[in-house]
Amino acid sequence: MDHRPQAWGRPRDDIYGAYDGSYLQTTGPKQNTQAPVVTGTSVVALKFKDGVVIAADNLASYGSLARFTDVKRLRVFLDTSVVGFGGDVSDMQYLDRHLNELAIDESYETDPSAPDAGALNAANLHKYLQKLMYKRRNDFDPLWNQILVAGLDSGSKPFLASVDLRGTAFSSPSLASGFGAALAQPIMRKYAATEEDAAKLSREDAVKVVQECMKVLYYRDARSMDKYSIAVVTKEGVELKEDEQLEKQSWAFAERIRGYGTQTV
């Protein structure tokens, strides 16, 4: 160690090389674009005749480490909408608290039977989240999430839309974030390629399709787990189950797999 106080706290020339004066000229941009740390994987959702089914598993990963296995990534908003979060969990918690405050603002209207009470529907909520996410990306401080919003629109029709960390938003009869976009969407589109198809789908069928998607994701997504949450949103409200277990998995065929080509024993 160099014992001259002048040198304290200064990178040692013998290790880092002589000081590069050009560093003084450049005033680099303020960097607060983080990277996600504790993350959740896919969210999948599908519209049906009377509403929307949405699901996400209960895992929060730390890199490849399956660190937290009891993280509920579906959040209910005002008993009328469900928000599904993929991506950074700390940002999810920030958004959850933010939405909680928004919901309290809504409760200032004391009369639940008033004609305009509960007017903040899923479509409004999605638009709000889009503006929020887009603002944060313009501040170069994005919220590292992909979000699915499920509920009903102002005409009480099923509503489903997504928004990501850049504020990009779109809507479709079926949606999936993360790995689900590649693995679940093709399955769901078989049943509901168009709004008309989705409008014919029964609740039971929609739930079944989404469960199938969760199973495929568990088979093929290395950041997923077999415990998941699933919610059904209809005019009657939200039914949320947070401790579901994937059922009827198919593994037994492994017995017939021998070697990697010609081997048979």
């Binding site: 504790v38 660190r67 937290f68 969990v89 700390s90």
Partner: peptide, 24 residues
Amino acid sequence: SIPLGGSLHKQTYAIGGSGSTYIY
């Protein structure tokens, strides 16, 4: 538990630090 990104997790027990990876 509050890991690196600043998320908050209620747990029955928690382990952390570099050594924790060996004892999961």
